[in-house]
């Protein structure tokens, strides 16, 4: 099979998966919609973190800052200013992006591993500060006003078309939004990495000095990635908490839920590979279902798998797969055109 027909086949397959996922609220159960919503949002967080750590070399353990701020900004929009939750999601993304500027200003001064600590401290500062925001419940948090999600833009129409309850319709809406967000993030990541800037970013990963010598400014490029992934993470945080409907500093800034899981998903799937987070989130979901009854054992298993992968297969499951089969689903390198011998 030629490369171009392989790519066509891959694209057709991915389109098929997308269509199937779009249909889930129509044909699947509500529990399934809710489950897949969590999977998709985790995928969005993982795609963003992978871009940061896997491609830009920025190992952040403070991504919960952006999830939390996204959630709080959305709540602020809805509760304080009476916005509809949908535009408030955008507010969440913008707030996270805005917050990423001072955080970048501070953490980019720290070298290597200490960048990680800097992001963590930053997230703690944001968490503790928002816990002082009494209008949104202070340290204990607050809930969306009753009925907010049922009155969301579009819920009434979905309810009518699908013939389901308002709650199911609002689940379907948030699910589709998550699907769109995940798809857009995946596509944007793919296009970015194949763009001039993205290739520059990968060049930096391979060799900073060489990249600099051909005119790539590592700092600006990394800052750009940091700000853009903050935007994506903030959008996802806002969306997540529309579904959760209750926000508190501890839940919105949970390092386990929004950073630890995300790191494991990416590492297991294959850090620094584009399909890695997709593979990782599937494994994560299967493990979660299989080990749901064992509570903490699940986290221990997750941690151990992460360690073993870092020790023996740094490119994760996806890396192992491409190594064994030579198949690259989403090739990031531009292939040199085959030279025709004349």
């Amino acid at each position: 099979m030629t490369t171009s027909s392989k790519i066509t086949l891959t694209r057709a397959f991915m389109a098929l998966v997308f269509v199937a996922l779009v249909c889930v609220p129509v044909i699947g159960s509500r529990a399934m919609v809710q489950d897949l919503f969590m999977v998709l949002t985790l995928l969005v967080l993982a795609l963003n973190w992978n871009m940061l750590a896997g491609f830009a070399g920025l190992v952040s353990v403070g991504q919960q800052a952006f999830v939390g701020v996204g959630a709080y900004a959305m709540f602020g929009g809805v509760i304080l200013w009476g916005w509809d939750p949908l535009p408030a999601i955008l507010l969440g993304g913008l707030a996270a992006m805005l917050l990423s500027l001072p955080i970048a200003f501070f953490t980019f001064r720290l070298n290597g591993a200490y960048f990680a600590i800097g992001t963590w401290v930053s997230a703690e500062i944001v968490r503790l500060s928002l816990a002082q925001w009494k209008a949104l419940g202070g340290g204990t948090g607050t809930s969306l006003p009753k009925g907010t999600t049922k009155d969301m833009l579009g819920v009434a129409q979905i309810k009518e078309i699908l013939g389901v309850s308002s709650s199911a319709a609002s689940d379907a809406l948030t699910y589709w939004l998550a699907l769109v967000l995940a798809t857009v993030t995946l596509l944007a990541g793919y296009l970015f990495l194949r763009s001039r800037m993205g290739l520059g970013l990968q060049a930096i990963r391979d060799n900073v000095e060489a990249a600099r010598s051909v005119g790539v400014d590592p700092l600006r490029l990394k800052a750009l990635v940091f700000v853009l992934t903050a935007f994506g993470t903030g959008l996802c945080g806002a969306l997540l908490f529309i579904q959760i409907t209750r926000v508190s500093p501890d839940a919105a800034f949970s390092v386990v839920d929004w950073t630890a899981f995300v790191i494991f998903i990416t590492v297991i799937g294959g850090i620094g590979t584009l399909p890695g987070p997709v593979v990782g989130v599937l494994v994560f979901y299967i493990l979660q279902r299989a080990l749901a009854d064992y509570g903490t054992v699940y986290l221990i298993v997750l941690g151990l798998i992460g360690i073993v992968i870092m020790l023996f297969a740094r490119k994760g499951l996806w890396g192992m797969f491409t190594e064994k089969t030579g198949i690259e689903l989403l090739p990031l390198r531009h292939r040199a055109l085959p030279r025709s011998d004349t």
Binding site: G57, A260, F264, I271, T296, V297, I300, L304, G306, I307
Partner: peptide
């Protein structure tokens, strides 16, 4: 590469924490 040690110790943190919990 700073990534592997960070991620391994991060994994270890989760394992120890939940092992103690168990």
């Amino acid at each position: 590469d700073i990534l592997p040690p960070l991620l391994v110790t991060f994994g270890l943190s989760v394992v120890i924490q939940n092992g103690l919990l168990e």
